[in-house]
Amino acid sequence: MNRQAEISEKDITLLCEYLDDELSIKDRARFEKRLQQSPELKQALADMTALKHSMRNLPYRPVPHQFTLTRSEAEKARRGSFLLPGFAWASVVSMILLAVIFGSEFIFANFSAPQPVAEPLAMTLQNDAAPESALRQAEEEGGEPVYLLNWVSVGGKGGGGAGGSGLGGGSLYAGDFATGMGGGLTEPYAEDMALNEPVEPPVPAEPMQIEEIAEPTEVASTLAGEKITVEPLIFGVREDQLGQVITVQPEDNEVPMVAAIPGVIEAEKEPLIPTNFKLLLVGLAAANGLVWLLLKFRR
């Protein structure tokens, strides 16, 4: 029977600690008491002592040569000492930056609240001729002008309310192009509000000037060949009332014929961090890591 097998792993560990004088005085006394009662433990201790003694007395091998450094070896060692960690850290920092950038972009892309209505505020006329004809028809039929509101120069002011996107800057024709204005309270400037004047289709970048403000009335308008009854959206707009809020909710089937301004939408899609910068970081991380590996394994 194997006497060693009778001794538990814990006792073997205790034996080692006893042998190496690593037990506390209290534990040592307790273990010595056990040793006196257990011949197996005593024998195991003798075996281990013999092994330790033999190991401890192994003759020292003479060194094959002196391991001291010459001046040139020392200088070489010093040079390498900052290069290696330098490249390693540069690589790590680049990787961390990349992780932060990609992580933040991922979070913004997936967990930020969606921007509800960007297109209506960025709309413009698809059919430039339509408002003009509508104006003419309205004048012929009722003699009253069509109200034309222009928010060209108040870009950004329409987005203040709940759901507003802040991407103002489009032109809005009362009755036909009020879609999307429910987003918030806006303050159109007086000089941007033109009434009773058939004008050229608005250019988003240039605000229109007001020449005259007439009394509002109900008119009918034809847009893109379809006759639409246009309810006057602004009643009694006078100079002293200019700058007040005007919002109209469109009917479901009255989808305005608008087209997004390409520049505005594309600007939205542009990433926060330029792709070139990301590529530069990837390159830096890879290059530094590669140099570090080369230096490490050339040693």
């Binding site: 792993e9 034996l15 092994l51 190991m55």
Partner: peptide, 16 residues
């Protein structure tokens, strides 16, 4: 360290 040393000594004895 303690457990590794105990195992190492056991293995050495077994080998010897």
């Amino acid at each position: 360290v303690k457990s590794r040393l105990a195992r190492a000594r056991q293995k050495m004895q077994h080998c010897l």
